[in-house]
Simulated assay, not measured.
Amino acid sequence: MSTGTFPRIVATDLDGTLLSSAGTVTARTRQALQAARAAGAEIVFVTARAPRGVVEIARQAGVTGTAICSNGALVYDVATDEITASSPLAPETARKVIEALTQALPGVGLAVETGRNVLAEAAYTRRVEHDLASYLEVQSVFDGGRPIVKLLALSPAHTADEMYAAVAEAIGDLAEVTYSGVEGLLEISAAGVTKAVTLDRLCAERGVAAGDVVAFGDMPNDLAVLLYAGAGYAMGNAHPRVLSAAGHRTLTNDEDGVAVVLENLLAGR
């Protein structure tokens, strides 16, 4: 980004990044986002969350417009509550991925994010308290033929880093494997589907160059976005892989790290 110019897109992760550890948007962060919008920037949430997990955050932040959800598999219009683009994992590919998962991680629990619900097999015991109404218990994640927006793999006996190391080579280029902060949980999308790829498509539609994007994130699923953007900021609380690879660093999410950067950019215009 050129000195004295303000980014055209502010692309930010939510959990561990924009949100405090209490899961809220602070007054300082909301004010910084509103000032960025007034300066001409579009605020784009780029998150592992499904659309239903974005609505309340958008309200707190005073943000409307487009959100990139489910690690890039969905594009969501916040104002109209419409999913405008979807890139699901093909069922036949999902079966191959599951075979690799169960061989590498015996006893792994499986669930599927459909975009509107979570289909959870018995061994998938994780539940997000504010999202309980969206869980459907199924014998198999393939029940009902619903879209596999994101395949979720849970192994409470392992860290996400351990799981990734165990399955990444076996899955190879069948699908995108990543994780976003929940221990023992991998998130798997269709091959070529990442936050960065979907953000690039959105930028192209708007005629925005990557150099005119500032991005924020904290976990491995954010890294491609941070490397794509003209200025990519790792949060002070970020995963070691992100801290070592990102070009810039800010304060932690609980220190309003996103707001601090935006305030400084606004002051330097």
Rank of each mutant, 00 (worst) to 15 (best):
T12H: 00
L223M: 06
D131Y: 08
G211E: 13
A41M: 04
S134D: 10
R49S: 10
T194C: 10
V46H: 07
L265P: 00
Q139V: 05
V55F: 08
Q34D: 12
R52L: 15
D13T: 06
T178R: 08
G16H: 11
T198E: 15
H248N: 13
R201L: 12
D218S: 10
I68W: 09
A245D: 02
G62E: 02
D200V: 13
A246F: 05
E121H: 04
P88Y: 13
T29P: 01
E113K: 01
A209K: 15
D222V: 06
H239F: 08
T26I: 11
Y164L: 14
A123K: 12
V141I: 15
L226K: 02
G40D: 07
G16D: 00
A209H: 14
R146I: 06
A39I: 04
V44E: 06
M163Q: 15
C69Q: 08
F45C: 09
I9R: 03
T64R: 14
M163L: 07
N221Q: 02
G268Y: 01
S134Y: 12
T114F: 06
M219D: 09
L101R: 07
G115S: 03
T64Y: 03
V197G: 05
V225F: 01
E162Q: 15
L227I: 09
A238W: 13
Y76T: 08
A38Q: 12
H130Q: 09
T5E: 15
L132F: 02
A210R: 15
L101M: 12
G211Q: 08
T93S: 00
R241A: 15
G230F: 09
R127T: 09
G230E: 11
V197M: 14
S140F: 04
D218A: 03
D161M: 10
C203N: 13
R28D: 02
I98S: 03
V149G: 11
V63P: 13
I57Y: 09
P91S: 10
T66S: 14
T12Y: 02
G115N: 05
G192H: 08
G23W: 06
R49Q: 09
E255K: 00
V118C: 04
A215Q: 03
H248A: 07
G145W: 02
A175V: 00
V55K: 11
T93G: 09
Q31L: 04
I68S: 07
A50S: 13
P91N: 01
I43S: 01
L132I: 15
P106H: 02
E42F: 00
P147N: 07
C69S: 11
S87M: 08
I83V: 15
L14P: 11
V108C: 11
D131N: 10
G247K: 04
V44M: 08
G217L: 01
S189P: 05
S20A: 12
A79C: 01
P240E: 11
V260H: 13
A133C: 05
M163R: 01
A67N: 03
K96Y: 01
Y179I: 01
A27M: 05
R52Y: 15
V167T: 12
A111I: 06
A58E: 03
R52Q: 15
